Amino acid sequence: MLPTTAYAESRFVTGTSSPLTATANLDFTITIPKFVYLRVGTGTSMATSTTVDNLVYTVPAANVGDGTAISGTGGDLTGGQVTARVMGNNGTIAFSSSTLGAMSNGAGDTISWSQMNVGVTTNTSATALSHPSLVDGSTTSINLPTTSGTKVTNLDARWTFTYRNDNVVAAGTYGGVNANNGRVTYGVSMP
């Protein structure tokens, strides 16, 4: 039994007239999968990472509640600064941030997420990735603009977080590594 053979289109032309011409067609199909990618902090482009960065703020006693912004330590870019990136290829992406409540010291005292300032600067994309508002015990969402055509979004930014330090609050450590409402969960949704 002979194997089935596939042939490309071909034309064989003979004759005495000039010029002799022949044409053949070749069809192409490219399949692009739908994808969405979110990175906040440590990570590798287009890969999954389980590292959660911890940003730490230590207020000097002489400055408690005086309105002097406090820079942090930690983050993949250090100094309380992180890389943020959202990519997707199937339409408008809803980008959200969620908190479980105001940060707590475990003794009944709290610091509102409104005390965190987020500075946004461009990284590699022409338009910086905006940061959704941080609200105590709530989820806020923004729709991201497409950056190419009508369905592609490719935005990134450098986010620098500072503690506003606007209020005198009780002593203690507020938040923590997935403790005392100290975690923000970011999410993306694409059609």
Rank of each mutant, 00 (worst) to 15 (best):
M1Q: 10
T4W: 03
T5P: 00
A6G: 01
Y7F: 12
Y7L: 09
A8E: 11
S10D: 09
S10V: 00
S10Q: 09
S10N: 11
R11E: 14
V13A: 06
T14H: 04
G15T: 03
G15A: 01
G15Q: 04
P19L: 02
L20I: 08
L20N: 07
T21Q: 11
T23K: 10
A24C: 05
D27N: 13
F28T: 11
F28S: 04
K34V: 13
V36W: 00
L38A: 03
R39S: 09
V40T: 08
T42W: 02
G43Y: 02
G43C: 02
S45Y: 11
S45I: 06
M46A: 12
A47C: 00
T48D: 15
S49P: 00
T51F: 02
D53F: 05
N54R: 10
L55N: 07
V56L: 10
Y57W: 15
T58W: 04
P60R: 09
P60W: 10
A61P: 13
G65L: 09
G65P: 01
T68L: 10
T68N: 10
I70W: 03
S71F: 11
G72W: 01
T73S: 15
G74E: 05
G75L: 08
T78G: 08
G79C: 09
Q81E: 13
T83N: 13
M87K: 11
G88K: 00
S96R: 06
S97Q: 13
S98V: 04
T99L: 04
L100Q: 13
A102V: 01
M103P: 03
M103N: 01
A107L: 15
A107F: 14
G108Y: 10
G108M: 07
G108A: 06
G108H: 07
D109A: 15
W113C: 03
W113F: 13
Q115W: 02
V118Y: 03
G119W: 01
G119N: 12
G119L: 08
T121K: 05
A126H: 01
A128G: 07
L129V: 07
H131T: 03
S133C: 00
L134I: 03
D136V: 02
D136A: 01
G137I: 07
T139A: 10
T139Y: 08
S141F: 06
S141V: 15
I142G: 05
I142P: 00
L144F: 09
L144S: 06
L144A: 07
P145V: 02
P145C: 04
T146Y: 10
G149E: 12
G149I: 11
T150W: 04
V152C: 00
L155C: 07
A157M: 10
R158F: 08
W159S: 03
W159I: 04
F161Y: 15
T162N: 12
N165I: 02
D166P: 00
V168L: 15
V169I: 14
V169N: 04
G175Y: 06
G175L: 11
G176E: 07
N178I: 02
N178P: 10
A179G: 09
A179D: 14
G182W: 14
R183I: 11
T185R: 14
Y186A: 09
G187H: 05
V188E: 01
S189C: 00
S189Q: 14
P191M: 04
